[in-house]
Design a protein around this nucleic acid. Sequence first.
DNA 1: AAAATAAGTAGGAGATTCCCTACGCGTCAA
DNA 2: TTGACGCGTAGGGAATCTCCTACTTATTTT
Lengths: 121, 121
Amino acid sequence: MPSATDQDRVFAALANATRRELLRLLRDDGPQPVRALAEHFAMSRPSLSEHLKVLREAGLVSERRAGRQRIYRLEAAPLCEVQDWLGPYERFWRARLASLGELLDRIPDEIPHAIPREEAP
Amino acid sequence: MPSATDQDRVFAALANATRRELLRLLRDDGPQPVRALAEHFAMSRPSLSEHLKVLREAGLVSERRAGRQRIYRLEAAPLCEVQDWLGPYERFWRARLASLGELLDRIPDEIPHAIPREEAP
DNA sequence: AAAATAAGTAGGAGATTCCCTACGCGTCAA
DNA sequence: TTGACGCGTAGGGAATCTCCTACTTATTTT
């Protein structure tokens, strides 16, 4: 029954700091073999291989064989879909930031009254 | 040891279709009590309560008591942070879409050669 | 051909997820 | 005050996640 959707797989893949760091490395340092990626983690290499598998199945990375290495490469298309998913929510945080702005604007005047000192009896 | 970060909690909260649908309902229909939300799901109400708890702990919803109801409300700030996180990846899918665009531009000319008809012998 | 290298797979332990039913707590209505 | 209502929490079961240590497979080097 619980056949995960594409979106489930993408968000689940992103819900782990190790996998997000893998994506960052592939983004900042370009395509790399597993060995090079593994140097940045305390984790065992097989565990890292499984993280890469999760990213692969979410479509977030692709793999190319080169001799006995496998070069992993960032695939950003699913992230584009995440951004599309965020779209309809955007106006909500814009509204919230706007009212925070107003609040901050009012503070200089209102602070003296916001926390009134107690009077001695 | 693996104390989840804020970002872990947000992505994990989003990695479930029920919770994403809850967010959509709060976005499209505004703040609501649990009962109203529950009408849209086949799931038991206590299970839904736990999904709301996950969303609460990710900061994606807030709760206000009104009599014996609890009104849930969308809090979009963490989604704003997701968008910020996406920022550095944006150029990757733009690059990819651009080259897809080029490809599509070439198709009208190349299709006749792309799948050549077999000649009769 | 044998050894070394790169990386995936098997299998398992412990934690977490996601669903359920049963129950407890506070609030409103008779 | 008694009962009904709205919601959360407890506890449990099945599945999944995340890590590990072997082990296998494929390729390159000696």
